[in-house]
Design a protein around this nucleic acid. Structure first.
Lengths: 255, 255
DNA sequence: CGGGGTAAGTTGTCTGACAAATACTACGAG
DNA sequence: CTCGTAGTATTTGTCAGACAACTTACCCCG
């Protein structure tokens, strides 16, 4: 395919994901307000120029994400739930979380280095122990105040022949650099979290007293083939944000 | 509408959910091991006795839940991802979490009372301020050691004419009582959490020093019609469990 | 004015077919 | 013998139309 300046979105994958994005867009922009009923499936399918099967594919995904609710014989409705700002279900970065809270996101003390992977890191990233990893450490600020200390760890081979990339990661989102410069799209991640107290090194970097309350988040991100790409450790100030999670079930015990 | 609180086991739902349950069962039982490829859609559809469209509906749901991965032209594979024990994505109760960790779940200091709803509670549960709510407070133990203090708040009218139900809630899971005795199935919930320090009352109930690390979780559960049913406050010992979350995306966002 | 039945509307399911992408195989060049 | 390449088979994605199951609203009747 000849290279165009901006490949709108034509080439990517199944057509149903385009439909999904179009519908989420309409919901986000308020074109489809919460609680309202969507047009019927045949009508909406014709309007979007796809078959009803493809539309249903997209609707099923949206229902799984909690954005719409389908009722047999009645219609499909936009969920009127609290469209929570930073839901942990979707894999946002720290920058997005800060901006979603209406504050200005910044970075301090950004630095990176290479080191041999520890046994734990090698296991998470599917490397041989001792292979080099790139560690990117940043202190993220909201309106100038340090709120998160993050350490992102990824295989060094990703940036081996691209010397400038590590510097880019200090300035921009790592997800963004991975996708735009390396063509690696993060598909999903698994996060584990626990309350901890700030030890002396973390306290110094975040400029808080030792023993302060933090939420520690360990996360591993995978691409669409379940290959581990990056492992992250984050320490969040306890009162910086509230995290929310949309939980499914247990209302499916009937069978 | 005829008053049918909840028909026994009349398979009210769509057939695709039965297919979904059957497939999750096979994955959970190990019949379909992680990483293996499922039979092709036509083959699996005939085996399950449904059309391919219905099977795809179920597969779509499973993909959204992260249990399988579909690859165009290749096949559908059981996700070999971390089938984490207590993932926050699914709405388990404290009892399930304790048992999943291989410990014995118990309850201490269970008690309940009625009180007028506070403004915040009334808003969450869609009540008039001042209407009575039932508050169920329990200390949950794992192998005899207190690990969670929980307060569940629900409209008093649910148990107004069933005096024994509140006592049942001290012994069994509230979800279970809601579903079996009241015909109310919790469909989903939204949880918010934050690290906190134990104040004096919480510390006394959990038998820990004041200032100990806790994870506070506020949650509101809804039925299938987005009606708020119960509001919960839980205080978890920081080192009792690790919570994990499966995070989608960021994949491809248009904007 | 209330109740019940009927009809219209909507989602769920089925059937069959073709398109698009991938995995496998056979073949030929080096 | 090794490697790359083209072709074929397999698998998921999409399409079209039809009918079934279910809900809602309207109209008619008591």
């Amino acid at each position: 395919m000849p290279s165009r300046g901006r490949p709108v979105k034509a080439r990517t994958g199944p057509r149903s994901v385009s439909v999904r994005n179009e519908l989420t867009d309409r919901i986000d922009r308020g074109v489809l307000a919460a609680g309202t009923r969507l047009p019927s499936e045949p009508a909406l399918a014709t309007e979007l120029g796809v078959s009803r099967a493809t539309l249903r594919e997209a609707l099923r995904t949206l229902e799984g994400e909690g954005l719409v609710r389908r009722m047999w014989g009645s219609g499909t409705y936009v969920a009127q739930g609290p469209r929570v700002a930073n839901s942990l279900d979707v894999n946002f970065g720290v920058t997005d979380a800060i901006r979603a809270a209406g504050m200005e996101a910044g970075t301090e003390q950004g630095r990176y280095w290479f080191e041999p992977a520890s046994a734990a890191e090698a296991g998470q990233l599917n490397l041989e122990p001792g292979q080099d990893v790139l560690v990117v450490e940043r202190v993220r600020t909201a309106d100038g105040k340090p709120v998160v200390l993050s350490r992102d760890i990824l295989p060094a081979r990703f940036v081996a022949d691209r010397p400038g990339l590590a510097d880019q990661m200090l300035l921009r989102s790592i997800y963004e650099v991975l996708e735009r410069d390396l063509g690696i799209a993060i598909h999903h991640g698994v996060a584990t979290f626990r309350p901890v107290r700030a030890d002396v090194t973390v306290a110094r970097q975040l400029d808080i007293p030792r023993g302060e309350l933090l939420l520690a988040i360990w996360q591993v991100d995978y691409d669409e083939n379940d290959v581990a790409i990056v492992s992250s450790h984050e320490y969040h100030l306890a009162d910086a944000f509230d995290f929310t999670v949309h939980r499914r079930g247990p209302g499916r015990r009937v069978q």
